[in-house]
Design a binder for these strands. Structure first.
Length: 306
RNA sequence: GCCCAGGUAGCUCAGUCGGUAGAGCAGGGGACUGAAAAUCCCCGUGUCAGCAGUUCAAUUCUGUUCCUGGGCA
């Protein structure tokens, strides 16, 4: 199995710098695993690696989509896989780095096979959810896939829609598909390093980073995107930072409040990431300062003594 | 020094006509299989400032001490 190194952890903890150090040390290249850094023109708010950093180590899966392009974890897994395979042929180490847990999981284990998301079905179901509420979708799901209905809360519209979509387009229950798949067949042998630190310290860093983003011109970046015609309703524009600046531009809140909410929502996001990664098996947790230890671990791993 | 208003959850406060208390914000835990920076679920015990008194019972009433605001000197 191909070996890769994966760096994960919450937002703002220093994954970018850490991954660059490791990649340089082992002559590797970085594969982003971030569902927002994939978009062009969204630089400040996504804390995308800057030009100087990219010059140090080649980056992939970053900065290659228009903000209104459709994208999903399945496409990510396929494309990132192709990049890793190409690097592998040259004997170059792939360092996957990012905070989108689902992308990392999809890359390493794949997703269950099924028809890809169909925009039509999706929006039709979304309309129905709007009209009749989540409960009606839940009722329908209970009929065709009671197991899934049991696991999905009636308010969790996204998951209800997906489950119904899978049933309607394949005739099979998502619960069965998931059980069969079970994330049980890794496609890569990954040394996964999770970055962590004291929660309070992280939160301080996050607050400070938001202030820095504001100084760097986050508001201008978002206003510029709107001017270019990218609607605030876009998925990308509803991400952290972008939606907050949008709220200010809409005059829903004043700037202080927008920044306050931006900090809070970033903190909450970091918390959710901890929840996700905590239960991922096999992660070795490190403080971002432990670069030497990480290097030793990678060396061991590559030497096959893992 | 005197007068007034306060001291209740991390913060801002509500409340108990005496039967040990609850909102908002913040925070915590969890879920997650092709939208995932999204989406969703759950979580409030805190010497009710300290001490003493009245009472079957005090965070609630009384006294006193301390602290914080404001006013007068």
């Amino acid at each position: 199995m191909k070996k890769i190194v994966t760096i994960c952890g919450p937002t703002g903890i220093g994954k970018t710098g850490f991954a660059i150090k490791l990649a340089k040390r082992f002559d590797g290249q970085i594969i982003g695993a971030d569902s927002m850094q994939i978009y062009k023109y969204m630089d400040i708010g996504t804390a995308k690696p800057d030009a100087r950093e990219i010059r140090q180590v080649p980056h992939h899966m970053i900065d290659f989509l228009e903000p209104d392009d459709e994208y999903d974890a399945g496409q990510y897994a396929r494309q990132a896989s192709a990049v890793i395979d190409a690097l592998d042929e040259k004997g170059t180490l792939a360092v996957v780095a990012g905070g989108t847990g689902l992308y990392i999981r999809a890359l390493i284990f794949g997703l269950f096979r099924s028809a890809p998301v169909c925009g039509q079905t999706l929006s039709r179901l979304a309309d129905q959810a709007q009209e009749k509420g989540g409960q009606s979708l839940h009722d329908r799901l209970r009929e065709c896939d009671p197991k899934a209905a049991k696991r999905i809360h009636p308010n969790d519209i996204f998951r209800l829609i997906r489950a119904l979509e899978v049933f309607e387009s394949t005739g099979r229950a998502i619960s069965t598909e998931q059980e069969t798949h079970g994330f049980s067949n890794p496609k890569y042998d990954s040394l996964t390093l999770g970055l962590t630190m004291d929660r309070e310290v992280l939160y301080d860093r996050i607050n400070q980073r938001v202030d820095i983003m504001m100084n760097q011109g986050l508001l201008k970046e978002v206003a510029g995107l709107v001017e270019k015609g990218y609607s605030l309703g876009l998925k990308s524009m509803q991400s952290i930072g972008y939606r907050h600046m949008g709220m200010f531009l809409n005059q829903t809140v004043d700037l202080d409040e927008a920044v306050r909410l931006l900090k809070r929502d970033t903190r909450r996001y970091a918390k959710r990431q901890f929840t996700w990664f905590r239960k991922e098996p096999g992660i070795i947790w490190l403080n971002p300062s432990e670069v030497q230890r990480a290097e030793a671990l990678v060396k061991q791993f590559l030497d096959g003594r893992h």
